[in-house]
Each structure stands twice: as C-alpha cells, then as structure tokens.
Amino acid sequence: MTRKILIVEDDIETAAYMERGFVEQGYAVDRTADGREGLFLATGQDYDAVVLDRMLPGLDGLSVLKAVRAAGVQTPVLILSAMGALDERVRGLRAGSDDYLVKPFAFVELHARIDALIRRSAAGTEAPPSRLVVADLELDLLSRKVTRAGRPIPLQQREFQMLEYLMRHAGRVVTRTMLLEGVWNYHFDPQTNVIDVHISRLRQKVDKDFDSPLIHTVRGSGYMLALDG
C-alpha cells in the first residue's frame, strides 16, 4: 500500500527537495505552501504523516497543528523549523506534534523520522509488547534480558536502551541524532562521533559470535537493525 504524506512548507526549494525524496522512496506526496490549505488538506484527507513548517503564510504551523488536533485528527505530525531552541521544541510538542526536526536537515534524517512515526502510529493500537524479536535476537523488556539464538547476551543499561531503540525501529534507518535523542535525550550534537563507538561496542556483543550480522551501517545516514542489510 502506498503511504501518503502531506508536506506543508512555503519554501519552494525545500518543499520540492522533500517531495522528490519521498517520491523516490515510493510515497505519494501532497504539497502546499499555505497554512490554511494545509489545515484543510490535513483534516479532509487521510494521510500517513504530515511534515509541517512553522513559519507559513495564511496560518502559522503551530496554529495549523492545534486546529488539526482540535478536529480530532491523530495523523502523526513532524514539525520542521529553523527555530531549534529547546523551548521551541517544547512548544511544538505541546501543540501536539510527534517529532521536531530543525532546519537545515538531511533528507535521510527526515525520512528515518517520518518512517518511525508512521510505524509507531500503525502499532499504536496494539498493546505494548513485553518482548521484541528480530530473527534470533530476543529482548525481554520486563526482565531486561537479551538472548541471541538462546544464548544470553549481557548488556549495560545504555547498550540495552540502544538495542531496544534499534529493535523498535527494526528494518528502518536510525540516524545518530535519533539515537542521541531517543536513548540519551540529548538534543545537541557532540563534536566527536561518540555514537559510532557505542554502536561498535554493541555490535561486538550482539553480532561478533554469530554468522549473520544484524546491526548494519547505512552509509551517510546511520544504522539499521535487520536480518540482512
């Protein structure tokens, strides 16, 4: 089934860049540069996700978002904004957004986040699982134990959290920023690429003694946990 995305962005170049990217990835895309029209489309049609700019002509992004939520529409919304301070993020999340991405951004980052949002909203109706399973890798959220092919893998707390995050997004790209936000709750970018080293440690424990690697590096964007990269 083709997934449908609404892009509300008044900068033509940026909007075209996103549209091209999403279409290449097999999404159907609707695009508008006007806040009012964005609101009209978001409430009138069924989208899998909405990318919403904050500074818009007609009606600003946060007002659009509030109106969409007030209309009872629960489509996942990612706010895209040049305003990156933490208080701005908080305002965005309070208004009802599901994620917040600061401009400038790389398309892989946006795609990974949108992908995660769509996945999460599709799974939202099910009861939260108490264990995550990918191939022969099992992660028990209650006992906080990890096994692969029945063999226990001892992990430290952060390693466990990273693996949990990767497994929840199994088969999808997870960027370094997503890991920093999702596991450490940091919204800044450490100058050294510390995440790579954490991943390689995790890899040592999860993949080293097994034939098929599960944690793959996706060049230029991040990581992916899957049976075959």
């Binding site: 952060r158 450490w184 940091y186 450490p190 050294t192 510390v194 080293v197 954490h198 390689s200 440690r201």
Partner: peptide
C-alpha cells in the same frame, strides 16, 4: 556522569 559515560567508549578506543 551521563556525559562521561557517553564518552567512555570513545576514550577507551
């Protein structure tokens, strides 16, 4: 402590 821990693998490397 959290930050130190974030850098721990990098430093060890």
């Amino acid at each position: 402590v959290d930050v130190a821990e974030l850098y721990d693998p990098t430093a060890e490397e």
